[in-house]
Nucleic acid binder design. Sequence first.
DNA 1: GATGGTTGTAATCGAATGATTACTCGAACC
DNA 2: GGTTCGAGTAATCATTCGATTACAACCATC
Lengths: 198, 198
Amino acid sequence: MTSAERREQIIQAATSVFGDRGYHGTTTDQVAKAAGISQPYVVRMFGTKEALFLEVINAALAMLLVSFREQLAEHRSSGEPAEALVPKLGNAFIDLVKTRGLHRSLMQGFVSGGDPVIGVAARRGFLEVYAFLRDEAGFAPEEVQTFLSYGMLTSVLLCIEMPSLFGRDSDATELACAAFGHKLDLVLETMGPDAASA
Amino acid sequence: MTSAERREQIIQAATSVFGDRGYHGTTTDQVAKAAGISQPYVVRMFGTKEALFLEVINAALAMLLVSFREQLAEHRSSGEPAEALVPKLGNAFIDLVKTRGLHRSLMQGFVSGGDPVIGVAARRGFLEVYAFLRDEAGFAPEEVQTFLSYGMLTSVLLCIEMPSLFGRDSDATELACAAFGHKLDLVLETMGPDAASA
DNA sequence: GATGGTTGTAATCGAATGATTACTCGAACC
DNA sequence: GGTTCGAGTAATCATTCGATTACAACCATC
């Protein structure tokens, strides 16, 4: 396998593991095992655990923005009214659960915002999404705030695995229905009560 | 000092440190130093680091609910219209920045939701707030969702220390103004560009 | 069939960390 | 004035983990 392919594979495995256990809670050996390789190789490929984590965060943000820009392009060529864009981007955001650990790794990056290195990347990444929504998607600042708010609730619900209580706690069920809407089935496939959890 | 006082002091110190560095990223020695005592005493007082973290999370949730119930009682006795309650609770939530690390420790608990022990506490705590807003405060489910969303955005912005860019990045400034409103000054006191970020 | 570059691993090291043990100090109490 | 008990610490232990080093296997290409 070429080192570029290996790199991609490690980042994917690391996204899942970092999403589950956070930056400090993840060992390079866990990432290595998830990628099916040896621990020293992970370290040598990225230099340090911190560098790997930054790559995971940046890759997640890049996927997010690619997905958003796709939706924006589709929307522009469809001639639909402006307000149809919001749910499209919202659905695209939830669709990212298909990339296991993406939302959760991003949140892990955000809560590590106190770290001098990770914090800079987290703030820059967050502001990049903010600027996209306002400047490219054309949202008003209050619309951006609202959109980001719902995104953060979605992400937190995924972090605490609220969907695992679906059908077993009425409040959790109600909240999951409200937050994930008609994307609920997709979410339950990954995080539902029956989903094999890792 | 009595052990009860010491306990309270350790929880306060731990809230600050766990908020900064997360569950796995925090050492019991850091908590001990922040509380001005020795590391073994921290461990013996709470048994394990995990037990201490759970106490921190539960104490934070308790403070949050006490504060919300105060606002609710005030609101009820004031005879103001129902919609005046939302900003009151929102302001009360931001006011909790006075308890250093509270928002951030809660978020650290949420992103550790994959942990078999912490996860249960995180989900239970989140649902407790949900139930309060819907059943005690009388919010409709969609109102609860919106309120929680804004709360999560607020918390994430605090986690990534976005206010530290206030006045130095125009997007960050705009976002902080929108998210913190007239509580901005209070937030900047703790997390602003000039605040000593101990 | 040597040579060199690339992919990959086994072995290991040093530092950090949660926890345990054994101890000190001081005050209340009989 | 000895004794007990709660508050608190110094010393230390066993693990864990990120990182380093040295080495093995493969595969071009001359």
